[in-house]
Design a protein around this nucleic acid. Structure first.
Lengths: 205, 205
DNA sequence: TGTTCGCTACATCGATTCGATACATCGCAA
DNA sequence: TTGCGATGTATCGAATCGATGTAGCGAACA
C-alpha cells in the first residue's frame, strides 16, 4: 500500500516525490523502496482524491519570497531556499506535496485496517505508529500477534507431514525462527505499550 | 519471478495451473502465493517461449487413452484419469503442463542469476536447490551471504545517526535480528554443503 | 571560459503482477 | 434434485515495477 507510505511521510513534513522515495528507502532499510512508476501515479491519484495537495513552500521554515527578478537576487534566493531547512526539501524542483485533513483521515483508516497479512504494510504501520493513539496502536500490535500465531500453527502443522528434502526443511526452520523472533519482538513492544512509564514518546521532535 | 516458481515445480512433476498455485502456496508456507491473474499469462508466455508445453497425460502413470466416444466410455475414462496418480493431477480439467529441455536450461539460468537482492526469489531458489549442482549451489549461498553482510553494514551505518522515535528503533532492531538470524542460518547451510558427508541428498523423491 | 560529469527531480513507457470476478464442472449431501 | 462447495480455466482493470527519457544545477577540471 503505497498510499500508506506517502500519507505517513507527509504527516511529518511536506515533501516532493524524489524526497518521498528517498525517505521511504531509508525508513525501510533499503529494501522495499518504491519506484517512480508507482510513486507519481499514486501522488496524482491521492491529489485527485483530495488526500494530498500541492503546496508552494515547505512548511519547515517559510522563506521570504523573491521581490525582484535580477540574477543576483535569484541566486541569493536559491541559497536561502537551500539552507532554509535541515534537509533540502523542494530546493528548486516543483511539486511539494502536503497532506490534507481528508488525507489524515485516510491515513487513520489505513493504519487501523483489519488486514494484517501484508508484512510490508505492517512494517509501515509500525514506522508511523507514533501518529496513532495509544489504544488502536496496542490493538494493532495484538492483532498482528494473532496473525503470527496463526502462521506458526499453520507452519508446524505443515512440518508434521514431511517428506521434504534438506533444503525445504531448512526453509521451514528459517521461517519458524523468524516467526519466533517476531513474536518475541512483538511481545516486547506490547509490554512497552502497556507499562504507563514515560508517556512522552518524544513527540514529533 | 513467477517463471522460476513454475519451472521449478514442473521439474519435479507435470502439473496444471490450479495445482501449481496450490503447491506454491504450500512450498512458501502460505504467504507469497501467486494469483491466477499472473499464473495463466505466465504459463502462456512460457509455452510461447517453448519452456513448457501442454501434455495430455500426467507423467506419474500413463493412462490408456479413449478409443470410442460413447458416454459410458467417457466416464470410465475420467475415472481412470482421476485415480491414475497419487494426487489428482489433471483430473477433468485440461492443460497439464510439462517442462521442456529449453525450460530446464532457463531454470538453471534463473537459479544462477547474479541478482540476490530479491528475498522471494532467493527463497524459491533454495526450495529448488536440489536441482542444482553442488558447485553453483554453494556459490548461491555464499553470494547471498555477501548480500546479507552488505545489508547489515548498511543497517548499522544507518543506526549510527539516530534521532528516531521508539518505533523506528524497534523496527531497526527487528531487522538486525532477522539479519543475524539469516546469516547464522546461511552459515549452517554452507557448512552442510562443504562437509562431504552424506552426498546422497535423498535424490528426487 | 566552457565542458563534462553526476546528482536532483519529474515524468512516462511497457511488462508484470495482483485481486476480483466470471463461468463452467464435479462430488456430495440435504 | 437441488443446491453448495471445491476444482479448474480464464480475463479484466488497476497497481506496481524497472527502465528510460528529459532537464537543471553544481562541482571539477582543462
Amino acid at each position: 500500500m503505497i498510499d500508506l507510505a506517502i500519507l505517513g511521510l507527509l504527516t511529518e513534513q511536506d515533501l516532493h516525490g524524489y524526497e518521498l522515495k528517498k525517505r521511504l528507502g531509508e525508513l525501510l532499510s533499503g529494501r522495499a523502496s518504491i519506484s517512480f512508476g508507482s510513486l507519481y501515479p499514486a501522488l496524482a491519484r491521492l491529489e485527485a482524491q483530495g488526500h494530498v495537495k500541492a503546496v508552494d513552500q515547505p512548511t519547515a521554515a517559510p522563506i521570504t519570497p523573491m521581490t525582484g527578478s535580477l540574477a543576483g537576487e535569484l541566486s541569493a534566493f536559491k541559497a536561502r531556499v537551500r539552507e532554509s531547512s535541515i534537509v533540502k526539501v523542494g530546493g528548486r524542483g516543483k511539486k511539494v506535496y502536503g497532506i490534507t485533513d481528508a488525507g489524515r483521515g485516510r491515513l487513520v483508516e489505513l493504519m487501523t485496517d483489519p488486514d494484517l497479512s501484508d508484512d510490508r504494510a505492517f512494517t509501515l504501520r509500525v514506522a508511523f505508529a507514533r501518529h496513532l493513539d495509544s489504544n488502536p496502536r496496542l490493538e494493532l500490535f495484538e492483532r498482528r500477534r494473532t496473525e503470527l500465531l496463526g502462521r506458526r500453527d499453520a507452519l508446524s502443522r505443515r512440518t508434521a507431514d514431511r517428506r521434504h528434502d534438506r533444503y525445504l526443511g531448512a526453509l521451514q526452520e528459517r521461517d519458524a525462527d523468524h516467526l519466533a523472533n517476531d513474536l518475541a519482538w512483538l511481545d516486547r513492544l506490547i509490554d512497552l505499550e502497556r507499562t504507563p512509564s514515560m508517556q512522552s514518546t518524544e513527540e514529533h521532535s
